[in-house]
Design a protein around this nucleic acid. Structure first.
Lengths: 360, 360
DNA sequence: GCGCTCCACTAGAGCGCGCTAGGGCGACAA
DNA sequence: TTGTCGCCCTAGCGCGCTCTAGTGGAGCGC
């Protein structure tokens, strides 16, 4: 295995070892090449590729044809350097989160429509948000979109002084960060009203810990239970937004022997972990216990899961995130805004009327 | 929708975007600014940030301190433009794949060690690989690492003429693409020998369809079964690398009434889908059927899943992918290489001796 | 004829950095 | 003193592009 590190400065012999093809690793074609081929100035080629007025239709066509022939594509680095805008949005996500995956997919489509590109940077256990954001900054993104950021408000406050920031799913009151999220209160009410409507009274909440939206969901759960006159049944089980915490909660409930008739989980991952563990223990869902999640991740709709859940509008969240970012670029002095999207209850197979042996 | 929260910035002044503060969205600091602050030339600051010899320790320290003060960080676009190398590796991944998430996390660490940065571009149902790769190219990545690419060999063949390409998990014989993968043959033998060793003979394979490595796994399954004199028991169930296909396979098996004593799945996702569906149908794992997966994704090790699986060394794959890419940059004329990593059998709770009522 | 506007196009100055050819200077030998 | 080596450091070009200012020519009204 390669043990040699040739650190030649300047690259040594520039001679392309291969043939003299249009672009054999040697040098990538530039605007100059296209211009020369068509017989116009470089500036005009630039005009064509930026899609601004200033070139006749026939010239435009010839330029594009020549570019295609030699395999030219604009160099983003040079474009970024020359213009004040890079037309790139930086997105920080948690790679292990499939809901983030949904958001990213939708954001690609949204960004493309307004002529923007996305650069992804991952937050992970071994890679702090600060580092992920740093990488994005280095790429000179015009704006950052942070998906469920777990950074401190202080860090964001500094960050937003350097670049527009949109946070998806987590609010940062008191900072200039723009916010996109789901109407958590209404979402929780949708979930609880569904359970209450089918006769449940003993409804517990599986908490989301430090996850995005957890605080709001917990509070809304408490509020709704109180409003329904069920303050005595309020029960928040510790957890976070992972499958493991759902499974743990299930085991804990079983060990305590105090299984509620319904559980409202702070997100789908923990709900699925709970579902799996409780099912294995012989507790039937929904006959013995109803379960409701949050997010509507792809897994939730699978035939064997059929999780009832509160759907977050990932496409809508993505659209708003991109929109807010672009608007902020155009008008930096705008006050911080927040865009709140409507949730939707997706009733599937994990909820039903409570078991008969319970009364209180 | 969306309420506006107007937050006056401390200090009374209404945040004028064009003020002359250290760095209020106006202009990001440059090397020039750092140089001026320290009282040295710009070139010397460059030396410090590139980490090359040529600056005294004390100067180095003062430069870094000044940079930190004014929040300077090198502009990747300018750096890329000026040098022939961008020191950026482009990674294409499937954003919904958690094994890819593991790989990406490990690659970040590897790349950082050799002074490289990663740019992620997602392949998704609505975003073809070609587009994802195009975006990477626009960012002028030095090399591309494609995770389980589902592109045509022809496309890759053209691509590799423009930029070094490393494929992880999928082989492209006959092209100049460098390959990193797990020794599929040995991996499959590990899995099957484990099952054979505990007495299983009726072992089916849940196929991976078009997924990375599927072809090799299917062939190795057939080979091993034949070698064990079990050609009559060879049974490949159609599927792909998703949970849904595993669940479907379970339902199909139950409907047919021909449940094998063991199933070797082409990846963990389909294994988990199968596990969930078959468990719900009342079939016990591992008492009634043993199950073994492939990859060892994070979910597999969770308390309530405990999936026996063949572990792919994600850290090793990541390391090799980065190494091959960098080596190729240093020596473009190297012949195509492939790096094959050893798999490891992880025995957890889904495998055991076959049920007693079966004999043949 | 003149002045004017409009359109297609060009010239050339940077954007922030990497990189090479040197300049300045202290140390040491002759 | 004069070299001469070595270390820190500086000057300045150019990467591929955007963008402002400007050029030339056709068309129009007077």
């Amino acid at each position: 295995m390669g043990g040699d590190h040739v650190k030649g400065r300047g690259g040594g012999a520039d001679g392309t070892p291969e043939s003299a093809e249009p672009s054999p690793n040697g040098r990538r074609p530039t605007m100059e090449d296209v211009a020369a081929r068509v017989g116009v100035s470089r500036a005009l080629v630039s005009v064509v590729f930026r899609g601004v007025p200033g070139a006749s239709a026939s010239t435009r066509e010839r330029v594009l044809a020549a570019a295609a022939e030699i395999g030219y594509r604009p160099d983003l680095a040079a474009r970024t350097l020359a213009s004040s805008r890079s037309r790139v949005l930086g997105v920080m996500l948690t790679v292990h989160n499939t809901f983030h995956a949904d958001l990213v997919e939708a954001m690609y489509a949204e960004a493309e429509q307004v002529g923007y590109d996305l650069v992804l940077s991952a937050h992970a256990p071994t890679r702090h948000s600060e580092k992920a954001v740093g990488a994005l900054l280095g790429h000179r993104c015009d704006a950052l979109v942070l998906l469920g950021p777990e950074t401190s408000a202080g860090f964001l406050e500094e960050l937003v002084e350097r670049v527009p920031v949109v946070s998806v799913g987590r609010r940062f009151p008191g900072t200039r960060v723009d916010i996109v999220n789901t109407a958590e209160g209404r979402a929780v009410r949708l979930a609880l009203d569904h359970l209450l409507g089918t006769g449940h009274r003993d409804i517990a909440h599986l908490d989301g810990g430090g996850g995005a939206g957890s605080v709001e969901r917990r509070r809304a759960y408490r509020d709704r239970m109180r409003a329904a006159g069920l303050a005595d049944h309020i029960r928040v089980l510790p957890g976070d937004h992972t499958e493991a915490s759902g499974a743990e909660a299930a085991h804990r409930l079983l060990a305590e022997g105090r299984v509620p008739t319904a559980l409202f989980a702070s997100n789908d991952r923990s709900a699925i972990g709970f579902l799996d563990a409780i099912t294995r223990a012989g507790v039937r869902v929904p006959q013995d216990i109803s379960l409701i999640g949050y997010d509507d991740i792809p897994l939730a709709g699978l035939a064997h899961i059929q999780l009832t859940t509160v759907r977050q509008d990932s496409v809508g969240l993505a659209r708003e995130a991109v929109r807010l970012a672009i608007e902020r670029l155009d008008r930096p002095s705008l006050p911080p805004r927040s865009s709140v999207l409507e949730p939707e209850l997706i009733v599937r197979g994990t909820t039903a009327a409570p078991r008969a042996d319970v009364d209180d």
